[in-house]
Design a protein around this nucleic acid. Structure first.
Ligand SMILES: [Zn+2]
Ligand SMILES: [Zn+2]
Ligand SMILES: [Zn+2]
Ligand SMILES: [Zn+2]
Lengths: 157, 157
DNA sequence: TATTATTGCGTTATGTTATATCATATCTTA
DNA sequence: TAAGATATGATATAACATAACGCAATAATA
């Protein structure tokens, strides 16, 4: 869990306010659930954690709607290759949110959100443009094994 | 549908033979269904098309197993971001199958499989390595709008 | 060829992810 | 407070995927 969680929530309120939308209590709670998880969660897992953390059982339909909202406001990302959701790692950053690149550990499920190097993205786009294709919601999801899990398997030998 | 479909099937037989596995009639038929589609298909859509093309209703469970086989033999790719399956565009090519990059048109659903430029992939890997992460099944899925659909929306104005 | 092992696939059940639709509650604002 | 908009609840169903069991065809091998 990020230790500056209060600050992240504060920033989230501000972002929603300036977008003219409302971060309701439940939406905020869903975001808190995601902020409190070291791995991305499925909508159904969010239901479970919400129940544990807030003693209230929400229908999964509502969770999906709140996720839609949070994704719209760029507070949450959906990992399409995993059907899971995670809070954006850059909510409290000042810089612009750039093309995110998710490194997904297939062993432990942890995900690291980093910004893709601009010149790599540019090159990628250029090589794609020659096919006439125009990129949309740029987001790269790369699967592999994280540092931690690699170390574990070494020490297990 | 690729016009050299016979050649692709022939190549598929050869690839399976040299891998010591068998391309059964049904597996071949599933591959034919995918070769005959201009867009990737879900497992359930394959059931439908198989029925139409071969007058036989297979259980979806069997389709999934055949897809597993075809993916294993690299004759078919799964698009994780779309939960759909498509035949590899390079079955009949002589060159080695490199890291594929799928350009998925969000308007018409068509997908183009191109090989990612080697130096871009190298750069991407290098920038990732600094995080300690090791890439696994490298496959990029990029969403956007294809040339054809862009032209359509222009002429519709 | 008879015996045994392996593979391919059918069948049924169940799990997981996501959307559609309509009802109700809450919040805004005149 | 009444009217309208937004947020959420409730129920049903669709779409995607896997588990577990068993049988029949094929392959290996004695
Ligand atoms: Zn982000
Ligand atoms: Zn890991
Ligand atoms: Zn391919
Ligand atoms: Zn298109």
């Amino acid at each position: 869990m990020p230790d500056d969680i209060d600050r992240i929530i504060q920033k989230s309120y501000e972002a929603c306010a300036s977008a003219g939308v409302k971060l309701t209590d439940k939406r905020k709670n869903v975001l808190m659930v995601l902020l409190g998880s070291s791995t991305p969660l499925s909508a159904y897992e969010i239901v479970e954690r919400y129940k544990t953390q807030f003693s209230e059982t929400l229908p999964v339909m509502s969770i999906y709607r709140m996720l839609d909202f949070l994704i719209q406001e760029k507070l949450v990302h959906k990992l399409e290759t995993a059907s899971q959701y995670m809070s954006c790692a850059h909510i409290a950053c000042e810089h612009q949110h750039e093309t995110p690149q998710f490194l997904i550990c297939d062993r432990c499920g942890s995900v690291k959100e980093i910004a893709i190097k601009k010149h790599i993205m540019t090159e990628l786009e250029r090589s794609i443009q020659s096919t006439g294709f125009t990129l949309a919601h740029q987001q790269l999801e790369l699967h592999g094994v994280c540092k931690h899990c690699q170390d574990d398997s070494v020490s297990a030998n």
